[in-house]
Design a protein around this nucleic acid. Sequence first.
DNA 1: TAAAAAACTATACATATGTATAGTAATTAT
DNA 2: ATAATTACTATACATATGTATAGTTTTTTA
Lengths: 215, 215
Amino acid sequence: MAKKTGLTGKQDIFLKEIYKFISENNYPPSVRELASISGFSSPKGAADHLNTLIKKGYLQRNPSPRSLKLTEKAFWYLKMPNPFNDSSILYLPLLGRIAAGKPIFAEENIDEYVPISKQVMGRAEGQFLLRVNGDSMSGDHIMDGDMLIVKIQDTAENGDIVAALLNDEAVVKRFYKRSDGTVELVSSNPLYEPIVLKDGVRIQGKVIAVYRHIF
Amino acid sequence: MAKKTGLTGKQDIFLKEIYKFISENNYPPSVRELASISGFSSPKGAADHLNTLIKKGYLQRNPSPRSLKLTEKAFWYLKMPNPFNDSSILYLPLLGRIAAGKPIFAEENIDEYVPISKQVMGRAEGQFLLRVNGDSMSGDHIMDGDMLIVKIQDTAENGDIVAALLNDEAVVKRFYKRSDGTVELVSSNPLYEPIVLKDGVRIQGKVIAVYRHIF
DNA sequence: TAAAAAACTATACATATGTATAGTAATTAT
DNA sequence: ATAATTACTATACATATGTATAGTTTTTTA
């Protein structure tokens, strides 16, 4: 199942060992230390993994020994904060247009990784940014072009503002579950009709914050 | 002037070079790199400084190469933000209620320092955060409790949303200069009358971004 | 001003480190 | 089932690194 830039199971474990080492020591491991940690009897195994992870964009390195650096891609993949950054900062992927037929976190959908303060967004992990398209939520003062911080979850409470996938498009609506089992996704702009879904809905997360740039 | 644990001038400079290196590279320097940076022709000079700084409690190290670590004592001494902070982050003071009679940036007015991404707020320095009080700008979808990122400037263009000081209170309004020299501060909520000022106005800055937490 | 401490130079050496060569074993794709 | 890729083992080697020896120069302390 190893795609172009995805990780195999062993590579995944190896990357996690690197993260663990840096978190514990505040400096990067040597090739031999990684081999030893991973139970390899030769440095070559670790060196091969390192080169693969560098090629796939999860690591960076200088010619100097112990100059390994995890990329933001790696931190997002690991769903962990960057231990070298201040712990009050998280990097969140910014999703632009959702490509039809692709998983929502496919690389094609990620515009960039944006550093966001935990202080202003709450402490929880597992979040992403979504750019608002259209004015259907203007009643909640969420406007076209705003960036939303979305906390990843697949359920919601009645009245929550959620990001959901509808025909391969990410939509932002208020979520209501009716007593007959149907789900209503309601816009806060009265110009838009509520969307009624009998088969449930693929909720991506709950909107917990709004960010808007004024030009 | 070298006290028991205080630093001499050269040690001070040397410690700052270490701080700088780690900030820029995210991994610690080698002894020779430090010698080279400091203009020494031998690694011994750097090694001596390192041992002194370790003895005095500003550094820690393992037997491994490149395992230097700045201690909390060092951070305190340097009066610097954590070197592991990403440079794409700025700390902005968050202003709450403005105390009457005090300058706007008086310590009494600063609630806390909030890390904000340069990527989402533009690259400029000289900004602060202001918590919105009331609904007078609801027409611009700026709501009670929102946090505004304000770029410090004392002038504004017609139509800009500005933060201004009015009777020792920070207000957020749209700025209009009329041909007769008077200034009008206009709320975007029609329930509020425009404020007309003959003597000009003390503009604190221009609102460049809005941040809102949804509960 | 003399003594002590700090701040170096120049060179050497054992070890840690990244990388290379030449393979084998296991897993995945076709 | 076969080929390709991944995931290693074992060993070797040039270089980077920390440390040591033996000094000199500069700055600080008494």
